[in-house]
Nucleic acid binder design. Structure first.
Length: 115
RNA sequence: ACGGCAGGUCGGGUUGUCGCACCGCGCCUUAGAUGGCCGGUGAGGAAAGUCCGGGCUCCACAGAGCAUGGCACCGGGUAACACCCGGGCUCGGCGCGUUGUCAUGACGUGCGGAGACAGAAAGUGCCACAGAAACCAUACCGCCCCGCUUCGGUGGGGUAAGGGUGAAAUGGUGGGGUAAGAGCCCACCGGCCGCGGGGUAACCCGCGGUGCAGCGGCAAACCUUGCCAGGAGCAAAGCCAAGCAGCGGACGGGUUGCUCGCUCAAUGUCCGUGGGUAGGCUGCGCGGAACGCAGCGGCAACGCUGUGUCCAGAUAAAUGACAGCCCAGGAGACGCUCCUGCGGGAGUUUCUCUGGACCGAACCCGGCUUACAGACCUGCCGUUCGU
RNA sequence: UUCCCGGUGGUGUAAUGGUAGCACCGCAGAUUCUGGCUCUGCUGGUGGGGGUUCAAGUCCUCCCCGGGAAG
């Protein structure tokens, strides 16, 4: 399976994002929060966001990119048909630790097919 | 060699795997830039703060003035500026020379530095406390003269040199003069006025006159003078499809044969128009105040000419993840070399560990300001070593 | 992205350019058998740097922090 993460697999419209934030189910662990809701499509869409408390634009951009990278690499195991919003909180975590956070939160939501 | 100051340049590189965005009249595919392949490109010196100045867009606009805001030595640069360059003046620093003092100094000159540097003889206002007095008048302690005196002082007058107050006290220093004093008089310095010379100008130099009652400070207080500014900002603005609110028109039942009128129900259906917001496209990055190199002009900022290059375009917002090697830098270990005051210090091969700051384009430029690990270059200063 | 406000002790607020006050809180003492109330005293502040001025919380300028508006 491909490991890409194209424009269609990202949440881009303001209306869709507001919808997930207001009506989605919430899951969280230390360092990460997730909201998701069904989108009626055959594939999933994702958005990674870092709050103001992380720091300045450089640090927030970097956290967001790491989050996108993690989702890209574990995408093959995630159920389709959902919109995800990940909120990445600050903390001194390695790439592997961040990856475990994503897997745990998705597991709590019962949206992992294998593993 | 080390350290400091000032100015300038740069601000990690490279390989592999996976991944992202844009571009190509590239190729395949598809109803269709739908998907794929190939190739190219992909953050900064500050992209930051949003403090100035422009371009660009729309609105307003006959012309002029007022208000408001900004700027303010002079000349140049520039599209423009509160920026830059050169010059002047003032201030303070260091060095040198002359002169003087018990001492601090004064003057001249050189170097490098700072300055929002128009006007306080147009007017208004403020200058707390202290002080006699803070700008229009004058005297607290004093000094001097005259009178009285119980010899302690006291009354009248002159004076502003000395003391005192204060951030600031009516030009400064020295001499003459005087009852004591005072630009009262003189010399020098300062100020003002006039003339001459130099300079585009700011300003400078020289000569002469004037005792200087026009003369304190504050304009980042009001203000005056001169100059410059119409307002908003790419979320500007334009276009596209859809068509919500609204607007216009058409379409009902009953009463009667029909029309008007009245009444009832529906507050609907269809057509047209359609502001704003949301969506898409343009604006938006191949031709510009662009960048590199060379030549010429200019003290310089900068300009001109020639030649070459095309160099990010995202939009909940593209440059990432992992691994390896190299390059700077830091720490440690075993050795080796040199110096030694025998405590140690300096340099270096190899190995190990560590390790790259400030920070993310959002219409685009020119500046300013602020943040910043480290490296390199140039100049000056200091210390040490060698010649 | 653009624009606009604000910052004074721990908290809430005053201050024509001229000694930074007031209230609550805190601390100490007095009063009380003890605590509270009350009384007396004290600690502690102009967000930071630079400039103008004799003198700056106030005027000018550059940063820092906080809040708000437009869509």
């Amino acid at each position: 399976m491909r490991k890409s993460l194209t424009r269609h697999e990202r949440l881009r419209r303001r209306q869709d994002i507001e919808n997930v934030f207001h009506h989605g189910s919430a899951y969280r662990c230390r360092g990460l929060a997730m909201k998701c809701s069904e989108n009626g499509l055959s594939w999933s869409r994702v958005l990674v966001v870092s709050p103001r408390s992380v720091g300045k634009a450089v640090r927030r951009n970097r956290l967001r990119r790491i989050g996108k990278e993690i989702f890209r690499t574990i995408k093959y195991a995630v159920c389709g048909g959902y919109d995800f919003v990940f909120v990445v909180y600050p903390g001194d975590y390695s790439f592997g630790a961040r990856r475990q956070q994503f897997i745990r939160v998705l597991g709590d939501a019962n949206l992992l097919t294998i593993l």
